[in-house]
């Protein structure tokens, strides 16, 4: 894994909100590299900087200092145009509240980033339908967001984040509003996308969902204080139980 080049690199990242008396150090020197095939979970209490980290990694916010490198592009120095292209092509972002466009159907929501990227409407629709199919939502392609349950909307949002083979998937509490069964299916999808070669960062405060990750990073007050890596080999359960 480590012989490959990371899909995402955060280098000595800081983010200060406000100034003077109201200054908040949301991130204080974050270093993180995420490799192809890897799913990293970021855990930490509310206010520890999880969302700030993710929005900066996704090019939705700018760091106060440090570098963000996605594939080969340093997005802190990229032009607006380069950044927009990168966000359409390489980065999939899943928001906690889905952020679907209400006036568009599921398929249209998913096809939109592809069309914006210059794909023909027909081809974009074919891709969108395939992505929805992968989420088990093929039959809901022509529904509008308000005709779907929360879990279904979130899966549409994930299809939108994954369509067109994005190499980096960033998800901020994607399971936050879902029941535990649906939350689990969302995680299984993220996991399988990473198993297929994408790099993923999942922000969550739910240990059950974080446990799907290869690596769990613990954030406290804007700094990474600890991390855990799951066993590589098929560890024998009896071995672990004996140790526990």
């Amino acid at each position: 894994m480590s012989t490959q080049q990371p899909v995402l690199q955060l280098q000595n990242l800081t983010r200060v909100h406000g100034s003077g008396a109201t200054e908040v150090h949301a991130l204080r020197g974050i270093d993180l590299a995420v490799y192809p095939g890897e799913l990293v979970a970021v855990m930490g209490p509310s206010g520890s900087g999880k969302s700030t980290l993710l929005t900066i990694a996704g090019g939705l916010d700018t760091p106060s200092s440090g570098r963000v490198i996605v594939e080969d592009t340093d997005i802190t120095t990229a032009t607006v145009k380069q950044l927009a292209a990168l966000r359409r092509r390489s980065i999939g972002y899943v928001f906690q509240d889905y952020n679907l466009i209400p006036a568009l159907t599921a398929a249209e929501n998913v096809a939109l980033p592809r069309e914006l990227d210059g794909t023909s409407a027909r081809k974009a629709r074919v891709e969108a339908l395939a992505a929805l199919e992968e989420m088990g939502l093929g039959h809901l392609a022509d529904r509008f967001p308000d005709e779907m349950s929360g879990g279904q909307q979130q899966r549409v949002a994930i299809a939108r984040a994954l369509v067109g083979d994005r190499r980096l998937v960033l998800a901020d509490e994607p399971t936050g509003a879902l029941d535990s069964e649906t939350g689990e299916s969302v995680l299984a999808l993220l996991r399988s996308r990473c198993d297929a070669g994408a790099a993923g960062v999942l922000v969550t405060h739910e240990p059950r969902f974080a446990a799907w990750a290869d690596r769990v990073v613990f954030l406290r007050d804007g700094a990474i204080v600890d991390q855990t890596v799951r066993s590589e080999a098929d560890s024998l359960l009896s071995g672990q139980v004996a140790e526990a």
Binding site: A210, A213, R230, L237
Partner: peptide, 12 residues
């Protein structure tokens, strides 16, 4: 917490 979450990762 590190130990417990790791155990969860392995069980998962």
């Amino acid at each position: 917490r590190r130990h417990t979450v790791k155990a969860m990762q392995d069980y998962t």
